Amino acid sequence: MNIAFIAADTDSAQQALERFTERYGNVPLDQAEVIVCLGGDGFLLETLLHILGYNIPVFGMNYGTVGFLMNEPEEEHLPQRLAYAQPTIISPLRMRVRTTSGEYHEGLGFNDVFIYRETRQAAHIGIEVDGRERMARLVCDGIILSTPAGSTAYNRSAHGPIVPLGAELLSLTPISPFQPRHWRGALLPAESMVRFTLHDTVKRPASAVAGPAEIRDAKEVVVGVDQEKKVTLLFDPDHSLSERIIAEQFAE
């Protein structure tokens, strides 16, 4: 099996890279049958954006902090683990941002897209779903639109729901909402197109973030799943992403 190893810059990941390379070899991406990503969730998400278009499955091993999207860092019998690993196909969210100066920017995020205030002033955000206004003005610190894979990350920290992978849903979750005070978000069909409009941007500037892309002074942000872009994540049979999402809902 031709394996390409990619590692984060941390000492533990780089040391693991040396051991894996000595034991199993390390081929270039264009010769790889599978990519083994050594690091944490953040590094894995960066790797997924980098390898879009290669059509190579990715098996993550946790040499980071949280490792929700990663497998256990076991170095024995790697070819056998890869042969029996279960695939999960995910697509990223694509955001298109128009800034207050009229510039346009794009970004991709496998976990989520979020908007957040830039100053001490709360953001005022209008929400439109599939061309229909759903909320004229949400007063808040920000708002998150997350995929099921990202529902256990920032979305959960903001008290959003954990979404099973097969649910074909997106989670829309406000960050510290002030008005309407009791609104806690919504679950949307995965094919939804969501448009956020930022109001009073001179006084209340806000940034839009997707993956590594952070666009400041956003005026309008349009977000939807990019179904044309897909990546395959591999998981040990007893540690699939769907199982982790279920287990996370019962965590103490």
Score class of each variant (00 low, 15 high):
residue 150 G to A: 00
residue 175 I to M: 14
residue 148 P to S: 09
residue 149 A to S: 13
residue 162 I to R: 08
residue 170 L to F: 05
residue 161 P to V: 03
residue 160 G to D: 09
residue 147 T to Q: 06
residue 169 L to R: 11
residue 150 G to F: 01
residue 153 A to W: 00
residue 174 P to D: 06
residue 175 I to W: 10
residue 152 T to K: 07
residue 180 P to R: 08
residue 160 G to H: 12
residue 171 S to Q: 07
residue 175 I to S: 09
residue 166 G to E: 14
residue 151 S to K: 10
residue 147 T to V: 12
residue 154 Y to R: 04
residue 154 Y to Q: 04
residue 147 T to R: 08
residue 152 T to E: 05
residue 169 L to T: 04
residue 168 E to N: 15
residue 169 L to K: 13
residue 175 I to H: 08
residue 171 S to H: 02
residue 167 A to L: 12
residue 148 P to R: 04
residue 160 G to Q: 08
residue 176 S to W: 13
residue 149 A to T: 13
residue 169 L to W: 03
residue 166 G to T: 09
residue 156 R to Y: 13
residue 153 A to L: 00
residue 156 R to S: 09
residue 151 S to M: 05
residue 156 R to L: 15
residue 155 N to W: 01
residue 151 S to C: 08
residue 157 S to M: 06
residue 179 Q to A: 14
residue 156 R to W: 11
residue 179 Q to H: 12
residue 158 A to Q: 10
residue 171 S to Y: 07
residue 172 L to F: 03
residue 151 S to V: 11
residue 162 I to F: 03
residue 178 F to Q: 09
residue 158 A to S: 12
residue 172 L to V: 02
residue 177 P to A: 05
residue 149 A to W: 02
residue 150 G to K: 02
residue 148 P to L: 05
residue 170 L to W: 03
residue 180 P to W: 12
residue 154 Y to S: 00
residue 168 E to Q: 15
residue 173 T to D: 07
residue 159 H to F: 15
residue 171 S to F: 01
residue 148 P to Q: 06
residue 159 H to K: 15
residue 147 T to Y: 03
residue 172 L to Y: 02
residue 177 P to G: 10
residue 178 F to R: 12
residue 179 Q to K: 11
residue 163 V to L: 11
residue 161 P to Q: 01
residue 163 V to G: 06
residue 174 P to L: 08
residue 166 G to Y: 14
residue 172 L to P: 02
residue 172 L to T: 04
residue 168 E to T: 10
residue 168 E to M: 14
residue 180 P to G: 11
residue 171 S to T: 08
residue 180 P to A: 05
residue 155 N to L: 07
residue 147 T to D: 03
residue 167 A to G: 12
residue 163 V to Y: 02
residue 153 A to N: 00
residue 179 Q to I: 06
residue 158 A to M: 11
residue 165 L to Q: 13
residue 160 G to A: 10
residue 156 R to E: 09
residue 176 S to M: 14
residue 149 A to D: 01
residue 160 G to I: 06
residue 168 E to K: 15
residue 170 L to N: 01
residue 170 L to V: 03
residue 164 P to Y: 07
residue 155 N to H: 12
residue 153 A to F: 00
residue 180 P to N: 10
residue 168 E to W: 14
residue 172 L to D: 00
residue 164 P to H: 07
residue 161 P to D: 03
residue 178 F to E: 07
residue 151 S to L: 07
residue 177 P to W: 06
residue 165 L to G: 14
residue 153 A to H: 01
residue 149 A to C: 08
residue 174 P to W: 06
residue 161 P to W: 03
residue 156 R to T: 07
residue 152 T to N: 12
residue 154 Y to M: 00
residue 160 G to V: 09
residue 151 S to A: 12
residue 157 S to T: 06
residue 157 S to E: 05
residue 179 Q to E: 13
residue 175 I to E: 04
residue 170 L to T: 04
residue 168 E to C: 13
residue 179 Q to G: 00
residue 149 A to H: 03
residue 160 G to L: 12
residue 150 G to H: 01
residue 161 P to A: 09
residue 174 P to I: 05
residue 158 A to P: 10
residue 148 P to M: 08
residue 157 S to C: 11
residue 148 P to N: 06
